[in-house]
Design a protein around this nucleic acid. Structure first.
Lengths: 419, 419
DNA sequence: ACATTTAGTTCACTCCCCCAACTAACTGCG
DNA sequence: CGCAGTTAGTTGGGGGAGTGAACTAAATGT
């Protein structure tokens, strides 16, 4: 009962009634997912694993092949007795996705095909803090146009969607940025602006940078955690929260704003005007102050600063080590808050926090072990991001792909469609 | 894209493939839900609202009637032209659910039928803090047996399940309490113990008190919030978190432990050994200290103490008012943390916090408005619990009922089954 | 009384999964 | 080499479940 029935009860949701195409949809997704995660899979493998019959799997596979999502790649010769399976793998060279990122110091684009093969990856320095939104969006659109051209260049291809990562509060419903402190943007309709500039009707979604990074890390896991927290540290500190396998968006999309949770009521004044926010303890400026005062420079690319910091840590100067230990402790306090509230399976450190993770995690874990109310059972891993500063763009391109995996019927059945 | 498609995409999930009985299941639930929420509904109404055809609805309704879940109650004479609809309503007099609660100061039971009509409601003072688990479980089983007898007494009835609310960390998977600080219990297999004592094979689930209270409040809302936080204040302080319409359980079931999040690193030493936990600021002992020092008595029923406190507040003594203001401010700090992380639609105050809510909320809201990072858009309502100290038992009985609503096929099709 | 309107049922049809039988392709052994 | 054994995939019939149209049922209103 409660959440998990004895026999696996399938949950269907949605305000309107359900017809059987929903079943087909779910099973197409199931098969496609099986193909994705398996090294080499035959229809028979899928049938066993999914508990669908061979007949059904055959029919589903045929439809996926028809839609250009998967492909047969010859026989599987594994020396076993019996007829060898015909192995299936992701096709999707003709289906592409574009991720974009607006950062205070750079713009980035990343285009992949369905299998996640990178076709285009570009990052340009751009000082969005001192440019007005129009200019920034012009540049971003330019970048997107180039990327789209390159994606289309590789044969007739169908662009399934564009996702944009933004460092700020986003209304995912409308694709509008409500407030991006580090860009000083308020209420900018990003999706709309891009749609106009690109003159195209591909679906465009906008989401928070931390959210998308969290998804990137999630999808990169061989065994995706149902509950994961992504903690990003640049100038600001934010979190992307995944609970029950899904992104936690909250009532208005304003989740994970951990940077301004007070951890020291008598602490320093934060940029937001309050005192002792976590950001004042573990934001990039704070760590620079504590471990490498000479490196402080607000205008530098945070990635460069992170690398410089890491160098400092590797050099092992006493000032740096003491600084990292101090930062690690505050990090642990922040993480323990998340752990006590959300009980995640893993906390992934992104931004500069990921870069210097080895020098922060020991102190953080010490603090966490001390503060986890539920004891060792609740203490979770703290790991460095797999993708570092590219997590957000990756997340952006990957949610477009994920959308297809969750509903393969999005892709038209006919021949590949030109963009 | 992202989360919400343009056309309402139905999500089916689950590790194994999906067959069409899943469709039936979902549509039965859909119709049953429509009957529940509507004042008077005809098959035609349901068809319109659910976008299913009249034919399908008829068939679904027939099956629900057959299972004893709904019932036809004559014609609807509303003076409109045309053949009057035959109105449907919840039947379920023969289907019952039992909720139990273990509290440090009392045990409670609450039995309802499918429509939520209370058939048995009992609460006995019991000092579980000073009794050993065996004795407590004996008493609880006794209470349960009486309740079951009363439920069965009202005609042949089918007990759909039992849920137990416990003030502590619960492994919902196995129905085992891992750690209940106020009971000083560790690793007690509640579900198993009850199963043995009752000698019955009804499904028994165990869950945390705050979680169940949160569900009780959720189900009581006419327009259930997808994101709701229930904050319970007795000796300890805990939260039940609902996000995306579902209970947030985390990797190990240890969510919502907000009581021991530090809000004042130099504050008082908490029962847990750490300093400045939120519990030391807004737990019942703290508020008694601040607003009514003469009332402090650890052994008293928290509900009695809450009422005494409220009396004090109504009397309006200056000491009390200053105390409540102070507590309200700390409450606001705690709530703002939840708001910044989870962005709920509403925060519901339970336990003594609910009882004296009117005297706390103004200060709390002031603090919240100041601390919500996303500004007014993220500031949410803070309301008092509708159910006060009975929320947990209510939640317990209601999740059993909800389970049926989410999958009506749980109820056997044949004639009513005796327990 | 009869047209009009709305409620609910019946039935043929379709979609999609299941099952069982069948064909296909390979290994292994005499 | 050839045939048994084994596993892969396809084909065809069957049944559950929703759809749509026609039909019956039961009101209102003139």
């Amino acid at each position: 009962m409660a959440e998990r029935g004895t026999s696996e009860v399938v949950r269907l949701s949605g305000p309107s009634g359900v017809d059987q195409t929903a079943v087909r949809r779910a099973n197409l997704a199931r098969v496609l997912d099986e193909v994705r995660r398996g090294e080499v899979v035959s229809r028979a493998d899928i049938a066993t694993r999914s508990k669908l019959t061979k007949a059904t799997v055959s029919s589903l596979a045929a439809e996926l092949i028809d839609r250009g999502l998967i492909r047969e790649t010859g026989l599987r010769r594994d020396g076993a007795v019996g007829r060898p399976g015909r192995s299936l793998e992701l096709d999707g060279g003709g289906i592409t996705a574009l991720g974009l990122e607006i950062n205070s110091q750079y713009l980035a684009a990343r285009g992949t095909d369905l299998a996640g093969r990178v076709i285009v990856e570009r990052r340009i320095r751009f000082d969005a803090m001192h440019a007005d939104p129009e200019t920034t969006l012009d540049r971003l659109a330019g970048l997107a146009r180039e990327a789209v051209a390159e994606l289309a260049g590789t044969g007739s291809s169908f662009l399934a969607g564009i996702a944009v990562a933004v460092p700020g509060l986003v209304d995912a419903e409308t694709g509008r940025v409500r407030y991006a402190p580090n860009l000083e943007w308020r209420s900018i309709p990003i999706a709309e602006a891009l749609r106009v500039r690109l003159g195209s009707d591909v679906p465009i979604v906008v989401d928070n940078e931390a959210n998308l990074s969290a998804l990137a890390e999630l999808h990169a896991m061989s065994q995706p955690a149902a509950d994961l927290v992504y903690l990003t540290g640049e100038v600001g500190v934010g979190a992307g929260l995944i609970t029950g396998g899904r992104l936690l968006r909250g009532a208005g999309g304003f989740t994970g704003e951990i940077g301004h949770v007070p951890v020291d009521l008598d602490g320093q004044v934060c940029g937001c005007g309050r005192r002792g926010c976590l950001e004042t303890k573990i934001g990039l400026p704070a760590v620079l102050r504590a471990a490498a005062p000479d490196l402080a420079d607000r205008e530098a690319d945070p990635q460069d600063q992170a690398h410089a910091l890491r160098q400092r840590a590797e050099d092992g100067g006493p000032e740096a080590m003491a600084g990292f230990d101090e930062i690690g402790r505050w990090l642990g306090i922040g993480v323990s808050m998340l752990v006590n509230l959300l009980n995640p399976e893993v906390v992934v450190l992104g931004g500069y926090l990921g870069t210097v993770a080895p020098y922060l995690v020991p102190a953080a874990m010490r603090e966490l072990r001390e503060r986890a109310v539920a004891g060792d059972a609740a203490v979770c891993r703290i790991t460095a991001s797999t993708f570092g500063f590219s997590a957000a763009v990756r997340g952006a391109s990957s949610i477009v792909i994920e959308e297809i995996f969750s509903d393969p019927l999005r892709i038209p059945a006919a021949e590949k469609v030109a963009d």
